[in-house]
Amino acid sequence: MSDIRLSKIRKDYGIFTAVADVDLHVVNGEFLTILGPSGSGKTTLLALIAGLSGPTGGQMHIGSQDVTYTPPQGRNIGLVFQSYALFPHMTVAENVAFPLEVRKWSRSKKDEAVGRVLQMMQLGALSSRKPSQLSGGQQQRVALARAIVFQPNILLLDEPLGALDKKLREELQVELKQLQRRLGITTLLVTHDQEEALSMGDRVMILNEGKVQQIATPEIAYLQPANRFVAEFLGTANIVSVSDGSSRKGILRPERLLLRTSAGTNKGVATVVSDLVYLGQTVRYYLSAADGTSFIAVRPFVGPKFALGSAVNVSWTEEDVWPID
């Protein structure tokens, strides 16, 4: 178990900068999610921490060890890829035993550790199968078992659930989070899925074009985004003027908007429902004002509803507006 410290880590490929001067401190036992669109440098950053790629600048520590130029073999990290990268010619048990064999663990110690991890991941019955005989979810578990069996200092996960369907992904998100808590292992998870990043991380790091946009708890990142990019990447954001006399803009989350039928009030902005989408538990309203501004509001399915084309007044409390730019 270790913390991870990056200071001014960068990676340039010629004139292209994939990762630009990233400062990061992941504390011992923390679950940090790294979120960004494709090409944001999040996978490159993970490869740098894994030692699969060397930085062109900066320093990196795992625990007290300076690992800036340490090869991957010397970092004691567990790694899971989206494609799992299981060894197809080995059985489940052989895959999981591989890191222990490399470390020259004794036979009894090895068998005991493999047995324990397989049982913990509910893979005991599958231990003599080949990866090609497993479902996607089972393969994912084997990859995870193989990454934790040798008690690494940190766990790196590169879109580990990206290849699974939505329902299974949500189940495994919960499982993975529980496992991480139980092991208390410092974990970095790379994802492009904002819901996954927010639901799994103790903190979220948002990257864009190789630069850190914000590192914060999911709640802070969602409600108090550091800039417009974060605001819009972490869900829908209504942009409104801040009423402090300045020309600053602020963001408002769609669930913060209050809607009333225009007939009963003259408070707020008069709009018309231009579209609405039923999402199950919630309804999403697209509202247009006469001056061309538009709003997106999310209301619970239970409660007052507004028909397409009906006149609705939109209002909000000033405290819910978070100033940006």
Partner: peptide, 12 residues
Amino acid sequence: RQEQVSWTMGAS
């Protein structure tokens, strides 16, 4: 990635 995973697990 199979090779990379193997390296991170300590294999030369």
